[in-house]
Structures are given as C-alpha cells and as structure tokens.
C-alpha cells in the first residue's frame, strides 16, 4: 500500500536549517506518529520539508507515492489542501475574528457556498468550545482559546494529514481538555494521520502508533508504542530517563 507520506534518504544542509542526513520513514494513512529528539536534532527541519517550505538537498519527499518537488500552482494547492499545520506560535491573523480566522481558507478558494462555510466553522467552534468567542480577535483570547482556534483553522478543510509542531507549550491541561477529546477522535479515524513534533513524546502515547527519534540529523530510534516503552535503544533510554549520561552529548 502506498504510504501517505514518505521520506526517502532525505538530506538538508541549507544554512539556517537544522541539518539532517539519510532520513527515511513512511507514514501510512490512519497512522499517527510522534517525532522527538533534543534541541538541534533536526526535528525542526521535518515539518518545513513536508510543507514544501524547504527543498531537500538530497533524497525525496513523497506524498501518496509522488514527489512534491516541482509541483505547479494547482498541484501545490491540492497538496496543501491535504495538509493541516498547527505550530507553537499559532499565527492567528490579528486583524480577523475567531470565525474569520477559521473560515479564511475556505473563503479564499473553496467551492463552498457562504452558508456551508458558516456551518462548517460553527460546528468546529462548538466542538472546541469557542463558539462564544466567534467575534473576538486573537488579542482578546486566552492562550488555550488561541490554541483551539488555530487547531480549528488547521483542520477546517478536513486534511488527511495534520502536523502539530511544538503546539502544546504553556498550555493548561484542563483548559485544552475539550481539544484533546477532539484530537483523539481524529487520531482514531483510519483515513487520517496526525504527526506530532515534540520534546515530550510521553504526552502522546495514547494517540501515536509510531515513535521516531532524531539525533544529530539522523533517525536513531523508530518503533511502535510498545517499543517506545520497552526498547533498550541507548538513545531512547537516555531520553526517557532525561539523563545527561549516554550516547547523546547534551550541551
């Protein structure tokens, strides 16, 4: 079966990026993966490659078996429509309301009628308990409300792949409880995948099927949830135990 997303021997050595080399993995549709590692491990290079914001200097990134290099405007638009992205800065448009932020993508180029867009947006706002904030601007929101709005914006077009990159920093677990329920439902959907980029992989053991650890730009561990708990991989052991002793030199 063709994977939803595949890295084949990918390398990046561009200035300003965390370098990676020989990175290969495949994520199937419905599979949820957690990428983790220490600072500078190459973790922050993976999402820009998937999103097409960065070109690999070697190897290839494939979506459903096809390379994402050299896509024309329409193909790139279709590819972007297959992906949702939520990052730790959230990036809500400050001049737009919660509702406008969520619906912007659909308003911009979708074939949906205005009333359909309103219905989709309202459903998401209700699920994430931000419907009473629909006319508020980002500056009027709490941190968890910003988070939930950014999540709604990332999934409003119902993407098959959702990337959540360092988005849980400084979030109160109780305030994002409703979000976690919604995320669990998405994680259980066999047609959709979620990729988490995080320094705290243990937070996602309930969601993720696959755990991939990077160090010095290379994959040093890749395994299932059970492997994540049981493996005696020295890198993983050092990471799990948050020890300064081990194969990873921590500055």
């Amino acid at each position: 079966m063709v994977p939803l997303l595949e890295f084949r021997n990918v390398a990046v050595d561009a200035a300003g990026s965390e370098p990676i080399e020989g990175v290969s993995f495949a994520i199937a549709a419905g599979e949820n993966a957690v990428f983790f590692g220490v600072e500078g491990s190459g973790l922050k290079t993976v999402a820009p490659l998937v999103l097409g914001l960065e070109e690999p200097s070697g190897g290839d990134v494939l979506h459903r078996g096809g390379t994402i290099r050299g896509l024309d405007y329409l193909e790139r638009l279709r590819y972007k429509n297959a992906i949702g992205y939520l990052h730790g800065d959230y990036g809500l448009i400050s001049s737009l309301t919660v509702e406008q932020n969520i619906s912007l993508r659909l308003e911009y180029y979708s074939e949906y009628l205005p009333e359909e867009i309103t219905a989709i947006t309202e459903r998401l706002m209700a699920e994430l308990r931000i419907i009473d904030k629909r006319t508020a601007r980002p500056v009027q929101l709490t941190r968890s409300e910003i988070f939930r709005t950014a999540y709604a914006r990332a999934v409003v077009h119902d993407p098959e792949l959702l990337i959540i990159e360092f988005a849980f920093v400084d979030q109160s677990p109780l305030n994002i409880r409703s979000f976690m329920d919604v995320l669990k439902a998405r994680g259980a959907d066999p047609a959709k995948s979620v990729i988490f980029m995080t320094y705290e992989p243990q937070k996602f053991v309930d969601f993720a099927d696959t755990f991939i650890m990077l160090y010095n730009g290379r994959i040093v561990f890749s395994g299932s949830r059970q492997d994540f708990f049981d493996s005696d991989n020295p890198y993983l052991v050092q990471y799990r135990s948050t020890s300064l002793r081990g194969p990873m030199a921590i500055s």
Binding site: L51, L53, R76, L77, K80, N81, I83, Y85, H87, D89, Y90, G91, L92, I93, S94, L104, R105, Y108, Y109, R153
Partner: peptide, 17 residues
C-alpha cells in the same frame, strides 16, 4: 512586519493563501 514576526504570513502561505 509584525505579521511576519508572529508567523501570520507563514500561516497564510501554509494554508495555500
């Protein structure tokens, strides 16, 4: 400049806008 700094411009690009 502020939107670029707060990654609002990036959010637009990623959304295909």
């Amino acid at each position: 400049a502020t939107q670029k700094w707060s990654r609002e411009i990036l959010a637009l690009e990623i959304a295909g806008i």
